[in-house]
Design a protein around this nucleic acid. Structure first.
Lengths: 122, 122
DNA sequence: CAGCATCCGGGTTGATACTG
DNA sequence: CAGTATCAACCCGGATGCTG
């Protein structure tokens, strides 16, 4: 809904905001970089990402597929063999996320100590 | 970080993962870029970000402060005047987020059409 | 192996009212 | 203006069991 009355810079339907929802997902942020390295199967993803349930994995992958970031390929075999890889669009996103990842790695110590200092204060 | 016992690439206590949680927050992704342009007060933030409640605003700002990304300044006046600005750390993050924001803007049409195509299929 | 259906407990969020 | 308190609603996400 367009919000011309309040002068919002970021109204609820702001285009980029919709796209950002994908990024806002906790797991998508972890899965996309993984797939950037190579296509993976469901089980491999489950193993490489710690602490995610099968349910959330499927859910997240569907969402990524829905947004055109991931390509799902069912090889139609028995037993089933399905793998996931980034689309062109997904690869372009992963390049942007790499920057964030690098930030996280480089600045993790600063974030951690800030948090500890803050918590000690309370 | 490596988890030698399970072979996880991304174990639950991976350092960068902790830092990524900040980014994973729906609202932080919107607030940080806003503050990158200029310091803002509580009410201004509420106005500029559409659809966020006072509660979530306070909560998110506290979290950002806790992680050393935002500096809260209480001018100790009546009526109250408090403003928020990015710290050095926060500015460095915002630079990384700018890349993601640009991605969102540029690729929003592709994401949107992918979603519509996918949904039509169901 | 991939993944859906179901149940359900707990954390998150919004609405409202109130304080300094 | 900035923020807290409280409560109820909601949805996320895990666990389990089952199917092709």
């Amino acid at each position: 809904m367009a919000d011309t009355s309040t002068g919002n810079v970021l109204s609820a339907n702001c285009p980029s905001r919709a796209a950002l929802e994908v990024v806002g997902s906790k797991w998508a942020l972890l899965i996309v970089p993984l797939l950037a390295r190579q296509p993976l199967r469901n089980n491999e993803l489950l193993r490489q990402v710690g602490g995610i349930s099968q349910k959330m994995m499927t859910q997240t992958l569907r969402e990524l597929e829905r947004h055109g970031l991931v390509q799902r390929t069912d090889h139609q075999t028995v037993p089933p063999h399905v793998d996931y890889q980034l689309t062109e669009l997904g690869r372009s996103l992963s390049e942007a996320l790499v920057v964030v990842d690098r930030w996280a790695e480089r600045h993790y110590p600063a974030v951690a100590s800030a948090r500890m200092a803050f918590d000690r204060r309370r």
